[in-house]
Nucleic acid binder design. Structure first.
Lengths: 212, 212
DNA sequence: GACGCACTCAGGGATCACCCTGATTTCGGT
DNA sequence: ACCGAAATCAGGGTGATCCCTGAGTGCGTC
């Protein structure tokens, strides 16, 4: 219990903030709270916490972070809290800049552990997504039928991995011994499901989170 | 002088190996030598050195490393020794997997320093290339006339940078206020000079070495 | 002024990336 | 034996990428 990361809690409900603060106990130092994005920006700039714990819908679902300004954000580590654990929401969240994602149903101990890990630079995801993302980008594809996660099919994950590494459709087709048309189908599905518009976004996204 | 990285020297000339060994002195531990690739592979697998110091032409100029097998290589850190410091050679070398590149004209002290830095995970390049690569991918383009390096022209570097960040030709043209045709010309030149065959390779290459 | 150099474009062709619709096969499960 | 999800592929289209040849413009140097 040597290291005590500092945390700022951001949620628009007083009740939730109080609950989270209670759950965190004294394993972390809560150095601030905020009820909206504006307050949060000020508090973060002012107190530079190790971790920002915030509700997903305050993260600004989607892409805004990449295109617009959003300077100070990237300097900090965000752990998103959500009621949903659907893959779509998780993906939108980590694309928006969060380094971790847990549901509000999480137990106290697990929440503390997640915050500490985030503070140390790790990424923490709900099991479902972790399995999906890591599985997709790991170099070895297991030949097990498919680990339940029905979000991306096994074949789509293989294509996604090669896609992120910069291989042309033709190359991917050759490696997987399937036709180019099939690769196109899978690639198109993957990009749509990940809400990305091109392979460039996919590869830089994957590389930035060093999962290739 | 606490940390002593272990090194294996690979060169097909006994004389060069002896010279390098002498230059390294006792700041590093030379735990092996090899005269060809075969010996080198065995020695590396056997003794797992911190750094492999080898002549460029033994690294297998070009792409082989990426396409073919080449499993054990990536686990180790290579510092390439060369007589040439032409940008083409340097680029081929780092693309082949080396984390550093110095000429054989290097002074003893500098060589030792380079080996130590490589062992610690840094990248060490000859000044010419460092200037070129870093300059190309740095976010701010200096408006100085051009730092001698005639390998890539100023405009080509700007295009390369945007290209690596995933911008489409059309976008690049808009940002630089030039026509798409001009962007095509620059992009084509850059890819040829870097010995890359597509913008995807460039972007994933740049991202993997986190210079964007 | 002549020359070289960086930069700027055009035309045109070959290929690639991405998407949509729709069809067939393969295979596990009730 | 049947159903449905996964996987395979074709056709056909639009726009982006990449390369080649060729050519015009400023700008500094000899």
């Amino acid at each position: 219990m040597a290291y005590q990361p500092s945390v700022i809690i951001v949620d628009d409900h007083d009740l939730v903030r109080a609950g989270v603060r209670a759950q965190l106990g004294d394993a972390v130092r809560v150095i601030g709270e905020a009820g909206d994005v504006h307050e949060a920006v000020d508090a973060i700039a002012d107190r530079t916490p190790d971790v920002v714990l915030l509700d997903v819908h305050l993260l600004g679902h989607g892409r805004r972070r990449h295109q617009g300004g959003g300077r100070p954000w990237h300097r900090h580590r965000f752990l998103a809290l959500s009621v949903s654990d659907s893959p779509e929401d998780v993906i939108a969240t980590i694309r928006a800049g969060a380094r971790g994602y847990v549901t509000k149903a999480i137990k106290s101990d697990d929440l503390v552990a997640a915050v500490v890990r985030i503070a140390e630079g790790d990424a923490v995801f709900s099991p479902r997504l972790a399995g999906f993302v890591i599985g997709a980008f790991s170099t070895t594809i297991p030949d097990r039928p498919t680990p339940n996660s029905t979000f991306c099919r096994r074949r789509e994950q293989e294509v996604m991995r090669l896609l992120a590494q910069g291989y042309a459709y033709k190359e991917i087709a050759r490696r997987l011994s399937i036709s180019i048309k099939t690769v196109e189908t899978h690639a198109s599905n993957v990009l749509r499901k990940l809400q990305l518009s091109s392979r460039h976004e996919l590869s830089s996204w994957a590389a930035r989170r060093r999962i290739v």
